[in-house]
Design a binder for these strands. Structure first.
Lengths: 225, 225
DNA sequence: CTTGACATCGAACGCCTGTTCGTGGTATAC
DNA sequence: GTATACCACGAACAGGCGTTCGATGTCAAG
């Protein structure tokens, strides 16, 4: 409220409209179009509020030019976050390494703090079905994942979850041997079959109590150069 | 030349200008601004060419509206590729499958025709060092690449080249057996050592005359969901 | 040569659109 | 009360801007 750059409802509405209109039509609205949207009959009032928005740093204006409006970077950033989720890049945080002899330790981060991470991987969201905000990436260390066709240095994109459906490739923590592996998950009666991705290797069978699912593998990739 | 949707120099210039102007200013140009840019004194000529561009599917127009221009998706894709190279995504064309019993056949495409491809993969350019315009992607079919830790359905990002340095992972065409495989390349004296990525498997040795390098593997990735 | 499709020009018309100006209502401060 | 921001209104002006129309030039087909 005491914020020097706080926006009135009207100004907020105007800013939202400019953003939506520009997204949908590829050009900014006219003053009269804005007025119609936010129920202002007078163009001068719209102009007045646009000037305010400019003073507050949300808007850039080109004088004497039709549709001479542009959101500043400051304003754009507020909207961009949403836009990227809808269509574009997803930033997946690279949270650490998979070590075969330890469970995967990843804390829940707030949506904001995630982007403070130095290491992250940008993926096209088209590659990743479903929600993208519970994804994380891990780098594989050692060659203990060969049964999953994954090797040292590979990066695994995972979705945080503790249950799995048959056929999912999951990261599982096997309590008996204290090891983490990537396997295809199949619940068969009173036991769980873990099938390697490598078709030349056979499955292993474990009791449900000895399996803790860490996440579902969405993607694996490897950079060789 | 006989292409029904070929563009004259003027039309190409107009389209470029609309793209640049829109990028820089956040709004489309007016007819008169276009005319000034491409040296057309008459607004009607600009209008005439805009209509042509619309007919050819590059432009959408809103009648009786100032700056009522918009590039269609078709046109946008052409420019997006460039833009993404500068900052962000790279569109890598997915040209086909790797079949172990055939050499990789990929023709050189013009920069234009590449983007007509339906299948393409968007990658963050930060992942890929060096030039990105000679990259292509192939989908692996069958499980004949297990020695390279690559399996059916995986996608391989490659750089088109016919030579390799020691340590590069390359796609090689072995003439004796008429097979294509992915291996680490090592030139050792008068023979070539091809080392599988899978550390549990041993190398094979071949004479240089029997090896034809198809490209360098830049990245391998796998979607499991 | 004639025809017709295509490309270009200049000018005029008229709505579109930003700007300006005079006016007035509502608070808070003195 | 009065002063002073702040917010809002409507009208009028002027230049911005898309549209239309008649006229001209080119070039290949008939």
């Amino acid at each position: 409220m005491a914020d020097k750059e706080a926006l009135s409802d009207r100004q907020q509405g105007i800013l939202n409209y400019i953003w939506r209109y520009t997204q949908e039509r590829g050009r900014p609205p006219t003053i009269r179009e804005i007025g119609q949207e936010v129920k202002i009959s007078s163009t001068s009032v719209v102009n007045y509020n646009l000037t305010k928005l400019k003073e507050k740093g949300y808007l850039a204006r080109d004088a004497d030019v039709s549709r001479g409006l542009r959101l500043t970077d400051k304003a754009t950033q507020i909207y961009e976050a949403v836009r990227n989720t809808v269509r574009g890049l997803v930033r997946v945080p690279l949270l650490g390494d998979i070590v075969a002899s330890q469970p995967i330790e990843v804390g829940h981060d707030t949506p904001f703090s995630r982007y403070d991470e130095e290491d992250a991987i940008d993926l096209s969201s088209a590659m990743l079905p479903g929600k993208t905000d519970d994804l994380f990436a891990l780098r594989v260390r050692g060659d203990s994942m060969i049964d999953a066709m994954v090797n040292d240095g590979d990066i695994v994109i995972m979705r945080r979850q503790e249950t799995a459906r048959n056929g999912d490739m999951v990261a599982v923590w096997l309590t008996p041997g204290d090891t983490t592996t990537l396997k295809y998950f199949h619940h068969e009666g009173d036991r769980i079959r873990l099938q390697p991705a490598n078709p030349t290797m056979g499955p292993i069978y474990v009791a449900p109590a000895n399996v803790r699912i860490q996440g579902k593998v969405m993607m694996v990739f490897r950079q060789t150069a």
